Amino acid sequence: GKELVLALYDYQEKSPREVTMKKGDILTLLNSTNKDWWKVEVNDRQGFVPAAYVKKL
């Protein structure tokens, strides 16, 4: 099944490779191999968020 993460904080994208999320959002985790930036999918968009801003559910 898909792995989900919870947004712990708001995050505003700073580049086209990133995505914006709001605290409390549930996101689909696509890739967590990089310890600093995790790739997630939110609202049919894929991009990176800081790993410290999310936690695995």
Rank of each mutant, 00 (worst) to 15 (best):
G1C: 15
G1L: 14
G1Y: 14
G1I: 13
K2Q: 11
K2A: 11
K2G: 10
K2W: 11
K2Y: 13
E3V: 14
E3Y: 11
E3D: 11
E3W: 13
L4G: 03
L4Q: 10
L4D: 04
L4E: 07
L4C: 11
L4N: 05
L4T: 08
V5Y: 09
V5R: 02
V5M: 05
V5T: 03
V5D: 01
L6D: 01
L6K: 08
L6F: 09
A7D: 00
A7T: 04
A7E: 00
A7C: 12
A7H: 01
A7Q: 01
L8V: 08
L8I: 10
L8G: 02
L8R: 05
L8W: 04
L8Q: 04
L8D: 02
L8Y: 04
L8F: 04
Y9M: 12
Y9E: 10
Y9H: 11
Y9N: 08
Y9I: 09
D10E: 06
D10G: 06
D10T: 07
D10S: 09
D10W: 04
D10C: 06
Y11A: 01
Y11R: 03
Y11P: 00
Y11K: 01
Q12C: 12
Q12W: 13
Q12R: 12
Q12E: 15
Q12N: 14
E13V: 07
E13H: 09
E13L: 08
E13F: 07
K14V: 08
K14H: 09
K14N: 11
S15R: 09
S15L: 08
S15W: 06
S15E: 09
S15G: 13
S15N: 12
P16Y: 09
P16R: 10
P16Q: 10
P16I: 10
R17Q: 13
R17N: 14
R17D: 12
E18H: 07
E18I: 04
E18N: 05
E18R: 05
V19T: 06
V19Q: 03
T20K: 04
T20V: 03
T20M: 04
T20L: 03
T20E: 03
M21F: 11
M21L: 09
M21C: 06
M21N: 01
M21W: 02
M21E: 00
K22L: 09
K22Q: 10
K23R: 11
G24E: 02
G24T: 02
G24K: 02
G24S: 03
G24D: 06
G24A: 03
G24N: 06
D25I: 04
D25E: 12
D25P: 01
D25V: 05
D25G: 05
I26T: 06
I26D: 00
I26W: 05
I26A: 03
I26Y: 06
I26V: 11
L27W: 03
L27G: 12
L27I: 07
L27T: 01
T28A: 10
T28M: 12
T28K: 11
T28G: 08
T28L: 14
T28V: 15
T28R: 12
T28H: 09
L29P: 00
L29Y: 02
L29V: 06
L29T: 01
L29N: 00
L29D: 00
L29S: 02
L30S: 03
L30W: 06
L30M: 08
L30Q: 04
N31F: 07
N31T: 08
N31K: 07
N31R: 07
N31Y: 07
S32T: 09
S32A: 12
S32C: 12
S32N: 09
S32G: 11
T33N: 12
T33A: 13
T33W: 09
T33H: 12
N34M: 09
N34L: 09
N34C: 10
N34I: 06
N34T: 06
K35L: 10
K35S: 13
K35W: 08
K35N: 13
K35V: 12
K35H: 12
K35G: 09
K35Y: 08
K35M: 11
D36E: 12
D36W: 15
D36A: 12
D36M: 15
W37E: 03
W37N: 02
W37A: 02
W37F: 06
W37P: 00
W38C: 04
W38H: 02
W38G: 00
K39F: 15
K39W: 15
V40A: 02
V40K: 00
V40C: 06
V40M: 02
E41I: 09
E41L: 10
E41N: 06
E41D: 07
E41A: 11
E41T: 08
V42Y: 12
V42M: 14
N43K: 14
N43I: 11
N43T: 10
D44N: 13
D44E: 13
D44Y: 10
D44C: 13
D44I: 06
R45Q: 08
Q46K: 10
Q46I: 14
Q46V: 15
Q46D: 07
Q46G: 06
G47I: 04
G47H: 02
G47Q: 02
G47L: 05
G47N: 01
F48T: 03
F48W: 15
F48Q: 03
F48N: 04
F48R: 03
V49N: 01
V49T: 01
V49D: 01
V49W: 01
P50D: 01
P50M: 03
P50W: 03
P50A: 02
P50K: 04
A51V: 06
A51C: 08
A51T: 06
A51M: 05
A51R: 13
A51S: 13
A52G: 11
A52H: 12
A52M: 12
A52L: 11
A52R: 15
Y53P: 01
Y53K: 07
Y53D: 03
Y53H: 06
Y53E: 02
Y53S: 09
Y53C: 11
V54G: 01
V54P: 01
V54D: 00
V54C: 14
V54A: 03
K55R: 14
K55E: 11
K56V: 12
K56G: 05
K56S: 08
K56D: 04
K56C: 10
K56H: 08
K56N: 07
L57V: 11
L57G: 04
L57A: 04
L57M: 10
L57P: 03
L57D: 03
L57E: 04
L57N: 03
